[in-house]
Design a protein around this nucleic acid. Sequence first.
DNA 1: CATGAATGAGAATTCATTCAT
DNA 2: AATGAATGAATTCTCATTCAT
Lengths: 201, 201, 201, 201
Amino acid sequence: MARISKESKDLARQKLIETAATHFAAHGIARAGVDTISNDAGFAKGTLYNYFPSKNDLFAAVIEEACHRALRKYESAEMGATVRDRLRALAAADVEVLRENEGFVKVLVREAMSFRPETYPLIVEHLAPLVAKVVEVLEAGVNEGEIRDDRPPPQLALLFIGLLSLMYVQHWGSGGLWPPLDDVPDLVVTTFLDGAGGRNE
Amino acid sequence: MARISKESKDLARQKLIETAATHFAAHGIARAGVDTISNDAGFAKGTLYNYFPSKNDLFAAVIEEACHRALRKYESAEMGATVRDRLRALAAADVEVLRENEGFVKVLVREAMSFRPETYPLIVEHLAPLVAKVVEVLEAGVNEGEIRDDRPPPQLALLFIGLLSLMYVQHWGSGGLWPPLDDVPDLVVTTFLDGAGGRNE
Amino acid sequence: MARISKESKDLARQKLIETAATHFAAHGIARAGVDTISNDAGFAKGTLYNYFPSKNDLFAAVIEEACHRALRKYESAEMGATVRDRLRALAAADVEVLRENEGFVKVLVREAMSFRPETYPLIVEHLAPLVAKVVEVLEAGVNEGEIRDDRPPPQLALLFIGLLSLMYVQHWGSGGLWPPLDDVPDLVVTTFLDGAGGRNE
Amino acid sequence: MARISKESKDLARQKLIETAATHFAAHGIARAGVDTISNDAGFAKGTLYNYFPSKNDLFAAVIEEACHRALRKYESAEMGATVRDRLRALAAADVEVLRENEGFVKVLVREAMSFRPETYPLIVEHLAPLVAKVVEVLEAGVNEGEIRDDRPPPQLALLFIGLLSLMYVQHWGSGGLWPPLDDVPDLVVTTFLDGAGGRNE
DNA sequence: CATGAATGAGAATTCATTCAT
DNA sequence: AATGAATGAATTCTCATTCAT
C-alpha cells in the first residue's frame, strides 16, 4: 500500500491516537494493551509500531493531542466583559472539550491527578498554554480589582483548572448524576470566585 | 497461646498492609509486585497469600486502612468555635494523617482521582464517615449563616475534601515545593470559604 | 515446592544449562528460543527465569560451564616427558571434553570464531586458564629447545588452541568424515610442531 | 535501452549485496535488518525483494560474491619460484581480498567457522576453486620434496586456508592489535611449513 | 520497477497465583 | 503458617514478507 496519501497516513495516526485515548481512559495506561488498541483501531497488532515506537510514545501522543484539542477550544472561546464572564467562557470551553473528547480528557485528568513522576512533567509541559490562558484572565482581573491580589495568579490558575478537574471526577464518580455537565461552568466559577462562605460572615 | 498467635497474625497483616501502601504509592498498583511487597515486609512471596486471597484484596485492605486512619484523626480533631475554625481543624487533622501515612494517603487520593469503576465505590463507601463529619460542620454553618444556603452541604463537603486532595496533588506534583504542607489548612479554608474574588466585586 | 533441597535446585540449573548448550550449539544463540530450551529441559517457559535473569545470562552461564569442564579435564591430563607428549596429552584431554560435551564445545568454538564484540571478551576471560596451561608447557619447551624461541609463547598457545578448533570445525563440517576425532591429537601436534614442510626443504 | 536497464539493474543488485555484506559482518545475520540494508543501499524496504526472494537468498548471494572476489584475486596472484613463495603469494592475495572487502570476508569466515548445516555446503562449494588453487601448489611441492608426502594435499590445503582464517579471527578479536595484517602472510606460511618445533628437536 | 504501509508469527520477559513440602 | 519453585497467561516489541498503488 505504498504511495498512499499523506492524509490517509495522518488519518491512521489519528485513529490510533483516538482509540488509544479511549482505552487508556477506560482501563488506565498499565492495563490497556497495545494489541487491543491496534486491533480496535482497525489494524493488526504490529501496525501501531509503524506510527509510534513504543507504548509510552503513544501515550505521550495522546496527551499532546488532548492538550492540543483543549487549547484550540480555549482559543476560540468567546470572551465576555467581566472576569467572571471570561472565566465562565473558559470553563464552558473546557466542558465542551470534555463532551467532544471524553477519552482524552479522562486520560489527561487521571494522569494529572496521579502525579506519576514519568508523566507529570509531560502533562505540565503540555498543559502550560492552558494555564497561561487562565493566568492572562486572572492578571487582568487583579488589575481591575476583581481578583484578590494576595495570591499569585499562576497558583490561582492551577486552582481553577484543578477545580474543573475535580468537578469532572465527581461527575464521573457519581455516574454522571452530579454535577451534570451543564452546571459545571457556573459551579466552578462561583466556587472559585465567591467561595462557600455566607453573606454575614 | 491462641491470643498471642492471633496478635502476631494481626501484626503480620498490618505489616503487609503498611508495606503494600508504600509500594502502591511509589509505583502504582500495576507496577508494584506482590513478591517485592512480601519480601519487604519480611516474608516470603507465598506468605502474603495466607493473609490476602489476591493482590486486589490486598489493595482493598490498603484503601480500607487508609480511610480508617483518616477517620480516627478526624474524630479526635479539636473543634473550634466558628465554622472557619472547625473546618481548619478538620483540614489540619487531614494534613496530619498525610504526614503520618503518606503512602496510604497517596494511594487513596490517586485512586479517588482515577475514578476506576472497580475501586471508586469502595472509596466512596469508606470515605463516607469523613464526608459526614464535614457535612455536620457545614450544616451547623448554614444555620449560623456562615455557610451559603443555596448549595447542599453534602456537595459542599465533597468539594472541601476534593480541595484538600487537590492541594496534596499539587504538593506532590511540585516535588513538595508548593504548597508546603504547613500552609495547606489555611489555604484550603480560605479558598473554600472566601474564593478568589476581589473585595470590590 | 518450597524447602526443596539445595541440590535439586542446582540440578535444575544444570539441566537448564545443559539443554541450553545443546540448543545454542544446534541453532546458534539468536535462533535458539528460551521457551523451547525451558520446555526441553522439562520446565515451563517461565521457570528458566527463576534461574537466569535473561537469555544473555543463560548464555554466559553456558560459556562459563563449558570452560570450567574443559579446565577440569586439562588439569587431570596425564603429562608426558617431552613437550610433544605433553601437548598431545592436552589435545587428547580437549578431544575428550568434546566427546563428553559436544554441545558445550560447539557453542564455545562457534562463539570464539565469531568474534562478536558482545561475547568475545567473555570467552577470552573464561578461556584464559586453558591458554595458561598451554603457555606453561610451551615455555618449558622453549627452555628445553623443543619450541622455537622467536615467537611469544602466548601467541603460539592461541595458535595451538585455534588449530584444535579448526580440526573440530572440519570434523563437524565434513559430517564427522575427516578428521575422525581419534586422529585429532596427533594431527594437531604434528601440524603445530612440525609443519607441512618436506625434509629436504 | 535494454542494455542500460540491465546494467542499472546489476548495479542495484551489486549495491545491495555490498551493503548487506557490511551489515551481516557488523551485526550478524540474525540481527541485520532487511529494511536497514535496503535503506542504506539507497532503496526502500520493499525494493530488495525485487532482487532477492528472501533474506536467506540475499545472504547466499553475499557468500557467493565473497568467494568470487577471492577467486579473482587468487587467479591474478603472482607466483614465485619456490612453493614457499607461491604459498606466500596466495596468502598475500587473500589478505588483499580482506583489505578490500572486509565485510565480505568477515561474513565468509564467520559462516565457515560456524559450520551451520544450512550454509556450510554453500561455502564449501564456492570455496572449492580456492582450495583447488592451493592444492595445485601443494602437489607441485610434494613432487619437488618441499611438502611432506604423508598427508593428502587436499587436507593440507584446507589446513592452510583454515590457518589464514584463524589469523583473521585473532586479528579481529584483538581489535586489530595482533597480528597486524601485514604480518599475516609470513606468519601463516612459516606456521604452515615449519611448525613451532625447535631446531634441536 | 519502486514504494512503504500493513501484516502477524514469533520472541523475550513479567508476574500473580498455586501448591508440595 | 511459612516457604519459594513452578507455572503459564499475558504483554510489549521485532521484523521478514506481502502487495496495492
